[in-house]
């Protein structure tokens, strides 16, 4: 809707007398979309300095290399394989260290810097609502993580097709794995953004995210190992998986999509499966709710 100078709405393109603006005045949706794209590109360093591209791009490469190797191995005729050496759905947990680093590096980059340079008040002085800001950041981070997991999966899928494995089976498997990847991306992004939004210092956010994710994963897998093999108690070991986001979503996709589990101990039985699914949804909801609560006030 073109605005006329005399009937100019109390919009947000301020006419301070230097240059008039007669173009379209885009609303909330457009701002949210722009913020989403800006954040998504920023997560990979696009539109930023060359130095900030090094890290996300090299992590992306590190994620893709094993998938590429798997795809090549599948195509080596001498080995005569009938399936991929690693199922799609186990790729995430195998490479969870890389994912953790990417999240720890890029989530604070996405939100902590807005706090540090005091751009959040500027965002909120636009028609943008709190939900829009959080939604855009959350969606962008999740999309970035999804790309990070999804592209290697597609590489493996192409490898499987080239090796002339069953198209139907592999299409189904890769679709399921991509759905699982989406859940991984959303859960991890929620946790990462929530922690990062608590501090304007990038370094502190990075350390906090890593500590929470790496320590919970390390402690949970080691305790699971002890309980399952030294104590012979796979049920208790399975329940322990709730306490680390990675094992939690692994249990989720194992139960919902009926895939193989990569954790030391899978969730125990039907009750365990339902518990894992519920906790996953509660965790996502909690991250969303807490983020909204956090941004009621701009300052820390």
């Amino acid at each position: 809707m073109p605005a006329h100078p005399d009937s100019a709405p109390a919009g947000v393109i301020h006419d301070i007398g230097y240059r008039h603006y007669d173009g379209d005045r885009l609303g909330r949706a457009a701002i949210t979309r722009a913020l989403f794209w800006h954040s998504l590109r920023g997560a990979y360093g696009l539109g930023r300095s060359a130095r900030s591209k090094i890290l996300p791009m090299s992590l992306f490469a590190i994620m893709c290399i094993p998938a590429f190797i798997i795809a090549v191995i599948a195509n080596v005729g001498a080995l005569n394989l009938s399936d991929l050496p690693l199922p799609y759905e186990r790729y995430v947990i195998t490479t969870q260290g890389v994912l953790t680093i990417f999240l720890a590096a890029q989530a604070p980059q996405s939100v902590s810097r807005d706090l540090r340079f005091k751009t959040v008040p500027l965002y909120f002085s636009r028609p943008l609502e709190r939900v829009d800001y959080i939604g855009a950041k959350f969606a962008a981070m999740s999309a970035a993580m999804f790309i990070l997991i999804g592209v290697p999966l597609l590489i493996m899928y192409i490898g499987a097709l080239l090796a002339e494995f069953s198209v139907v089976t592999h299409s189904r498997e890769v679709a399921v794995a991509l759905l699982g990847a989406a859940v991984f991306a959303i859960v991890l992004s929620g946790i990462g953004l929530l922690i990062a939004s608590m501090t304007p210092r990038r370094g502190f956010g990075v350390a906090a995210i890593i500590t929470v994710l790496a320590l919970s994963y390390g402690a949970v897998t080691s305790l699971q190992g002890i309980l399952r093999y030294a104590q012979n108690d796979p049920t208790a070991a399975g329940w322990l998986g709730l306490f680390s986001p990675v094992t939690l979503v692994d249990g989720f996709q194992m139960w919902v999509f009926d895939t193989t589990s990569s954790a030391v101990a899978p969730p125990p039985g039907t009750v365990g499966g339902i518990g894992f699914v519920l906790v996953t949804f509660v965790l996502i909801g909690a991250c969303w709710g807490l983020l909204n609560l956090r941004y009621r006030k701009v300052s820390i």
């Binding site: 370094g203 320590l215 390390g218 002890i226």
Partner: peptide, 30 residues
């Protein structure tokens, strides 16, 4: 054996590197 495995994986394998990282960079990084 369990104590040794647990300390090896959690304390020495995860915690000490993390602490070294947070503290080592924390004294001068900010």
């Amino acid at each position: 054996q369990v104590s040794a495995d647990f300390l090896g994986a959690v304390a020495l394998g995860t915690m000490v590197p993390l602490f070294g990282l947070i503290v080592g960079t924390g004294v001068i990084g900010p």
